[in-house]
């Protein structure tokens, strides 16, 4: 479990151990920031594809109607 480094912890466990804890916390926050960036980029890309993409689907369920009328439509 990750713990936030504090002065109390540093004073109790000594400077060496407090440095290790701080390092772990920094790594954890970097990973958190990276994952946050990935999520945001994915959301923006998804929104762009959704709005701008040619995602129309051809009709697949239906039937054929004979063309008729003056304009054959």
């Amino acid at each position: 479990m990750l713990r936030r480094p504090s002065g109390r912890l540093a004073s109790r466990n000594g400077p060496m151990e407090s440095c290790v804890v701080m390092l772990k916390a920094m790594r954890a926050s970097r990973a958190f920031r990276r994952s946050l960036i990935v999520v945001v980029v994915a959301a923006v890309a998804g929104a762009l594809v959704r709005v701008q993409g040619k995602g129309s689907v051809a009709p697949t369920i239906g039937g054929w109607r004979q063309l008729s009328g003056p304009h054959f439509r």
Partner: peptide, 10 residues
């Protein structure tokens, strides 16, 4: 004769 396909996308 010619026909038109009318349907819904799935």
């Amino acid at each position: 004769t010619a026909s038109k396909f009318e349907g819904v996308p799935v």
